[in-house]
């Protein structure tokens, strides 16, 4: 309880700092954000003072004209993660980075899973936004409708923006966070870009803070830069729990930064039918050597064995051949 309280105070102070820097940024960069943040016009705020923390997190949302309290944080569904984080905080910015370059798909999947949690919490008809740099789409693949549907996210409710450069990614992301249309905003810039600095990150946090939209910053490429996000996840792929066949997605997720709780590393399995995380049923071990297809003697039953679920009886196979990338 005490830790919660400290975190809350810290957060309030963080807000004050963020606001100050954003007001500077709003003057230097083109003032895209002319809307009110926290009920005050951004430009009118004096750059220096750290405001005393508000009595509660509830504040007045003047645009809506009613008192707005912090939305409930939907749980992850993974008991250990929920204990450490207190659920997936809404109205803030989360940061997801891959552990290595080949883990970009796992990071994407984890970010999509977070979006899935947010969409489930927002209820029917909630829209979601995926802003990506064009190059990121080329490098890591474009969002694929049938695949998103198979992952449990409704592609009919997706608005996908392909921006030419980081500046436009940030612009569209800020618009998306400020608009009240989206339950989740995925922001995917490409590569290392100096424009994606702490100031830009704070602007995103701040706008997310004012609205009811949650931002998920997905850095599929480039080094993890500075962040002002509430949580930062470092995600790697982990062997699935499917036995002989690839199973539900499993992530080795490391929470490297958490402003509202403790950090840790967990194996998290995404249950598509429940749209929820859980701890994998059994320890994620690799297949025993004997089961690996390569370990089977070539003269025996091999290969075309794999088949589809339910497993087909193995057929006698031919030889193992190598296929070069450039055919003849």
């Amino acid at each position: 309880m005490l830790r919660r309280e400290v975190a809350r105070l810290e957060r309030a102070r963080g807000r004050g700092e963020g606001r100050a820097s954003a007001s500077v940024a709003a003057d230097v960069v083109a003032p895209i954000v002319t809307e009110e943040v926290d009920g005050l016009p951004v430009r009118d705020i004096a750059p220096a003072p750290v405001r005393p923390s508000a009595p509660s997190i509830a504040f007045r949302d003047r645009r809506a004209g009613h008192v707005w309290t912090e939305p409930e944080a939907p749980p992850f569904g993974h008991p250990a993660v929920d204990a450490a984080t207190g659920g997936l905080r809404r109205g803030v910015l989360h940061d997801v980075t891959p552990a290595g370059a080949p883990d970009m798909a796992a990071a994407t999947g984890f970010a999509l899973a977070l979006a899935g949690r947010l969409l489930s919490a927002a209820g029917q008809g909630a829209l979601w936004l995926w802003v990506r740099a064009e190059m990121a789409g080329r490098e890591a693949g474009e969002p694929y409708g049938p695949g998103l549907a198979a992952f449990g996210l409704d592609p009919n409710r997706l608005v996908a923006v392909a921006a030419g450069d980081t500046a436009n990614v940030l612009r569209a992301a800020e618009e998306g966070l400020a608009a009240r249309a989206f339950a989740a905003v995925l922001i995917e810039p490409f590569g290392d870009d100096r424009r994606l600095d702490l100031t830009a990150c704070r602007r995103l946090s701040l706008i997310a803070d004012g609205g009811r939209t949650t931002g998920i910053l997905l850095r599929t490429s480039g080094a993890p830069g500075p962040t002002s996000a509430v949580t930062r996840w470092r995600v790697a792929a982990a062997p699935s729990d499917g036995g002989r066949y690839p199973g539900n997605p499993v992530f080795a997720a490391e929470l490297t930064r958490n402003r509202l709780g403790s950090t840790g590393t967990w194996m998290m399995e995404w249950r598509i039918d429940e749209q929820s995380f859980r701890a994998p049923a059994r320890a994620p071990d690799i297949l025993p050597e004997a089961e690996s297809p390569l370990a089977v003697p070539l003269s025996g039953r091999l290969a075309a064995a794999s088949g589809d679920r339910p497993p087909l009886p193995a057929r006698p196979a031919g030889a193992v051949l190598a296929f070069p990338a450039s055919g003849r």
Partner: peptide, 30 residues
């Protein structure tokens, strides 16, 4: 929602399939 079933389609698709060097069993092995 099919309980426990993993997805059949990928979340990200390359506009142009990327050629790889592969070692596979013939005629139609994985």
């Amino acid at each position: 929602a099919r309980p426990g079933e993993p997805p059949e389609r990928p979340i990200r698709l390359f506009g142009r399939p990327e050629p790889v060097e592969a070692l596979a069993s013939v005629p139609d092995g994985p």
